[in-house]
Amino acid sequence: LKHLCRKALRSFLTTYQVLALPIPKKMKEFLTY
Protein backbone atom coordinates (compact mmCIF):
# COMPACT_ATOMS: atom_id res chain seq x y z
CA LEU A 1 0.00 0.00 0.00
CA LYS A 2 2.77 2.42 0.93
CA HIS A 3 4.56 1.65 -2.31
CA LEU A 4 1.44 2.39 -4.36
CA CYS A 5 0.86 5.61 -2.46
CA ARG A 6 4.43 6.70 -3.11
CA LYS A 7 4.20 5.78 -6.78
CA ALA A 8 1.00 7.79 -7.15
CA LEU A 9 2.52 10.81 -5.44
CA ARG A 10 5.72 10.62 -7.47
CA SER A 11 3.73 10.55 -10.69
CA PHE A 12 2.39 14.06 -10.16
CA LEU A 13 4.96 15.56 -7.80
CA THR A 14 8.56 16.35 -8.64
CA THR A 15 11.22 15.79 -6.00
CA TYR A 16 11.43 19.54 -5.51
CA GLN A 17 7.69 19.77 -4.86
CA VAL A 18 7.87 16.93 -2.36
CA LEU A 19 10.67 18.68 -0.48
CA ALA A 20 8.56 21.85 -0.37
CA LEU A 21 5.65 20.06 1.31
CA PRO A 22 5.06 20.78 5.02
CA ILE A 23 5.64 17.18 6.06
CA PRO A 24 8.13 15.45 8.40
CA LYS A 25 11.66 14.88 7.11
CA LYS A 26 11.30 11.11 7.37
CA MET A 27 8.26 11.27 5.15
CA LYS A 28 10.13 13.35 2.59
CA GLU A 29 12.96 10.83 2.57
CA PHE A 30 10.40 8.09 1.97
CA LEU A 31 8.69 9.96 -0.85
CA THR A 32 11.90 10.99 -2.59
CA TYR A 33 13.51 7.56 -2.25
Score class of each variant (00 low, 15 high):
residue 27 M to D: 00
residue 22 P to V: 15
residue 16 Y to M: 15
residue 28 K to D: 06
residue 26 K to E: 06
residue 30 F to G: 01
residue 16 Y to R: 12
residue 26 K to Y: 03
residue 5 C to G: 08
residue 7 K to S: 04
residue 6 R to W: 09
residue 12 F to K: 00
residue 9 L to S: 08
residue 2 K to P: 01
residue 2 K to D: 04
residue 9 L to Y: 07
residue 27 M to E: 00
residue 20 A to N: 11
residue 16 Y to A: 15
residue 22 P to A: 15
residue 24 P to W: 15
residue 32 T to G: 05
residue 2 K to M: 09
residue 14 T to H: 10
residue 30 F to S: 02
residue 21 L to I: 01
residue 29 E to R: 06
residue 19 L to V: 07
residue 15 T to Y: 03
residue 18 V to K: 15
residue 17 Q to R: 09
residue 19 L to W: 07
residue 12 F to Q: 00
residue 4 L to F: 08
residue 4 L to R: 12
residue 17 Q to V: 13
residue 22 P to L: 15
residue 29 E to I: 05
residue 32 T to I: 08
residue 1 L to N: 04
residue 19 L to G: 07
residue 7 K to D: 05
residue 9 L to G: 09
residue 26 K to T: 05
residue 12 F to N: 00
residue 31 L to I: 07
residue 18 V to D: 10
residue 7 K to I: 08
residue 11 S to H: 06
residue 30 F to A: 02
residue 25 K to A: 06
residue 33 Y to H: 10
residue 32 T to M: 09
residue 17 Q to L: 13
residue 7 K to N: 04
residue 3 H to L: 08
residue 29 E to L: 03
residue 12 F to D: 00
residue 32 T to R: 13
residue 31 L to G: 01
residue 6 R to F: 07
residue 9 L to I: 09
residue 3 H to P: 04
residue 4 L to G: 03
residue 2 K to W: 11
residue 9 L to H: 10
residue 19 L to T: 06
residue 21 L to Y: 00
residue 21 L to V: 00
residue 22 P to Q: 14
residue 12 F to P: 01
residue 33 Y to N: 01
residue 4 L to D: 01
residue 19 L to R: 07
residue 30 F to Q: 01
residue 24 P to F: 15
residue 33 Y to W: 12
residue 26 K to V: 09
residue 30 F to P: 04
residue 32 T to L: 13
residue 23 I to C: 05
residue 16 Y to T: 13
residue 6 R to L: 11
residue 21 L to A: 07
residue 17 Q to S: 09
residue 30 F to L: 03
residue 23 I to W: 11
residue 20 A to Y: 09
residue 30 F to H: 01
residue 23 I to G: 05
residue 16 Y to F: 15
residue 5 C to Y: 08
residue 16 Y to G: 13
residue 10 R to I: 07
residue 16 Y to H: 09
residue 17 Q to K: 07
residue 31 L to A: 01
residue 30 F to T: 01
residue 18 V to L: 13
residue 8 A to S: 04
residue 6 R to E: 06
residue 11 S to G: 12
residue 12 F to E: 01
residue 2 K to R: 02
residue 12 F to A: 09
residue 5 C to H: 02
residue 24 P to M: 13
residue 13 L to M: 02
residue 18 V to S: 14
residue 25 K to D: 03
residue 23 I to F: 07
residue 29 E to F: 00
residue 28 K to H: 05
residue 20 A to K: 12
residue 21 L to H: 00
residue 14 T to Y: 09
residue 12 F to Y: 00
residue 12 F to H: 00
residue 27 M to Y: 02
residue 4 L to A: 05
residue 17 Q to M: 13
residue 14 T to G: 06
residue 3 H to Y: 02
residue 5 C to W: 11
residue 7 K to L: 06
residue 2 K to C: 07
residue 26 K to N: 05
residue 6 R to H: 04
residue 1 L to P: 00
residue 17 Q to D: 11
residue 20 A to V: 14
residue 6 R to I: 11
residue 19 L to M: 06
residue 13 L to K: 09
residue 11 S to P: 07
residue 26 K to W: 14
residue 29 E to A: 05
residue 23 I to H: 04
residue 24 P to V: 14
residue 26 K to M: 07
residue 32 T to W: 14
residue 9 L to T: 10
residue 1 L to W: 08
residue 26 K to A: 11
residue 12 F to S: 02
residue 10 R to F: 07
residue 22 P to G: 15
residue 22 P to R: 15
residue 19 L to I: 06
residue 14 T to Q: 07
residue 7 K to Y: 03
residue 9 L to N: 02
residue 29 E to T: 02
residue 18 V to T: 12
residue 26 K to D: 05
residue 9 L to W: 11
residue 4 L to V: 05
residue 2 K to Y: 07
residue 15 T to G: 06
residue 3 H to A: 12
residue 13 L to Y: 09
residue 5 C to S: 07
residue 12 F to T: 03
residue 7 K to P: 00
residue 20 A to E: 10
residue 14 T to L: 10
residue 1 L to E: 03
residue 21 L to D: 10
residue 17 Q to C: 10
residue 5 C to L: 14
residue 33 Y to C: 11
residue 11 S to C: 13
residue 10 R to C: 09
residue 9 L to A: 11
residue 6 R to T: 07
residue 27 M to L: 13
residue 1 L to K: 05
residue 8 A to I: 11
residue 9 L to Q: 08
residue 31 L to C: 01
residue 11 S to D: 03
residue 2 K to F: 08
residue 11 S to I: 15
residue 5 C to N: 01
residue 1 L to Q: 02
residue 25 K to M: 04
residue 11 S to W: 15
residue 14 T to R: 13
residue 4 L to P: 01
residue 26 K to C: 10
residue 29 E to V: 06
residue 32 T to K: 14
residue 17 Q to Y: 06
residue 33 Y to A: 14
residue 9 L to C: 04
residue 8 A to W: 10
residue 18 V to N: 14
residue 20 A to W: 13
residue 13 L to E: 06
residue 15 T to I: 15
